[in-house]
Structures are given as structure tokens and as C-alpha cells.
């Protein structure tokens, strides 16, 4: 039976917006204090600095909290994933460009599915999150990344986009759920305009291409790949080899 997640809020009283949203989505929220006796899988909501070296053993999710955020970042998808025995992580675009939660999430996914190929999952996750940040949330194309001069301009555009607080605050959300026989299903979602996954996968790729490899690589290293939410979610499944 699914167990309703508990959101533990780091840094004082639970904000009203979180209490309301948690209640609406079938979860409960409490301040993150020591020796709290609550049932249900725990999700920590805290500043990105609290993600530290990883998820504590009794935590199943991490949601970055930013006091400046307009809305509460808790979503039904994350609540459902954790309730079903999975994991979740949500961070904003600015944080994803400043640190690397992918490593942390990948290490935690291996707790869930220890027999899958860690290297393959990390590569797929890094590709999906890179796409979600650059193409999804920042709305940038890769066409500039074909020369050093283009790369310099590309960096300038990233910095420019990040100066827009709305774009910097856009989220990337990762969830992982047990799948099949010792496998895992990972979803990576962004707040961008979405893209046609099938169309992108159908494009021929030159060996010497300097961009556009991400999806093809994910397809190679995963058991299954598909798009969802109008191309704003990428679903990837992995099964142990053999």
C-alpha cells in the first residue's frame, strides 16, 4: 500500500504555501527538527546547500527551497513517486548550473536498483538534465556550439538568460521508481516549452556532429525512452543487463 510522504521543511515554520499544497497533494509538511516521530517516507525541502554530499539514508527526496520562489515547487508527480517507494529531486536552473545534483541523485537511484549499470544511468541522467536546463528551461539551441567563438557566445547567452529571475527559477524535477525486474524508471521534467522527442530521435546523426547527441545516447544506454507532458518530460527505463 502506498504510504503518504512527509515533507520536512528546513529552516523554521512550514510556509503556508507548502502546508496548503502538501495537504492538497496527499502529503503532510512539518518543520525539520530532530527526533521527529512521523510515519511515511521523508522528503527534505531545504536550500540547495543542504543537499550536501547526498540523501541521508532515511530520506527519499529533496526539493530545493528558495524563499524568492513564486509558487511552491512540490508537485503531484514527486509526491506519487515517493509514495510508491521511489525518489525525487527538484532544483532550479541556477542551482543546476552551479552544482551537480545529478551525481547525488544517481547515487541514490542505485540504492533503489543496485543491479543496474551505474555508468549508463549517470550518462543518461546527465544528458537528460543537461537538455532540460539548456534547451528546456533556458530555451537555448545548440547551433552555436560548433566553434570556439560560438561557444563563447553560447556562454554569454546562458549568463544573459540566467539574469532573468523567472528563467533562473525554472525547475528541473527528477523522479525514480522501481520498474520491472530490478529495474528503474527515471523521469526528468523541465518548465520549458517542450520538444518533439520522436522527431528528434528520428534525426540522422553525423559522427562528427558537435551537438544533438544527447537523446541518441540515452536511447543507446536505456531500455526504453519516451516523451511526455508535451515534450517537457523524458521517461527513461533501465533494466539490469543479461
Amino acid at each position: 500500500m502506498a504510504s503518504f510522504p512527509v515533507i520536512l521543511f528546513e529552516g523554521g515554520d512550514v510556509p503556508d504555501s507548502l502546508a496548503y499544497r502538501a495537504g492538497k497533494l496527499g502529503a503532510e509538511a512539518y518543520p525539520n527538527v530532530e527526533f521527529l516521530d512521523v510515519a511515511g517516507p521523508r522528503i527534505l525541502m531545504a536550500p540547495i546547500s543542504c543537499l550536501g554530499a547526498g540523501f541521508a539514508p532515511d530520506f527519499h527526496g529533496f526539493i530545493e527551497y528558495r524563499a524568492t520562489d513564486q509558487g511552491c515547487p512540490l508537485t503531484q508527480v514527486m509526491v506519487d513517486a515517493v509514495a510508491a517507494g521511489g525518489l525525487c529531486l527538484s532544483a532550479c536552473t541556477a542551482s543546476l548550473l552551479a552544482c551537480d545534483p545529478v551525481q547525488v541523485f544517481c547515487a541514490t537511484v542505485l540504492r533503489l536498483a543496485p543491479s543496474i549499470d551505474a555508468m549508463m544511468v549517470e550518462l543518461a541522467l546527465a544528458e537528460a538534465v543537461g537538455n532540460a536546463v539548456i534547451h528546456g528551461n533556458l530555451g537555448l539551441k545548440s547551433d552555436l556550439r560548433h566553434s570556439l567563438a560560438g561557444l563563447v557566445e553560447f556562454n554569454g547567452r546562458i549568463a544573459e538568460q540566467l539574469r532573468d529571475p523567472t528563467l533562473a527559477a525554472r525547475r528541473v524535477q527528477m523522479t525514480a521508481l522501481p520498474y520491472g525486474d530490478n529495474g528503474v524508471e527515471i523521469q526528468v521534467s523541465d518548465d520549458g516549452d517542450g520538444f518533439d522527442v520522436e522527431h528528434e530521435l528520428g534525426k540522422p546523426l553525423e559522427v562528427g556532429a558537435k551537438s544533438g547527441r544527447g537523446l541518441a545516447l540515452i536511447r543507446k544506454v536505456s531500455t526504453h525512452i519516451e516523451g511526455g507532458r508535451g515534450g517537457r518530460t523524458l521517461v527513461m527505463r533501465f533494466l539490469p543487463a543479461g
Binding site: I48, S49, G52
Partner: peptide
Amino acid sequence: TARNSAPP
């Protein structure tokens, strides 16, 4: 731990 304050 989840309470660790070191930045990732």
C-alpha cells in the same frame, strides 16, 4: 546527513 550544510 540531510542536515549537512556543505554546499554540493
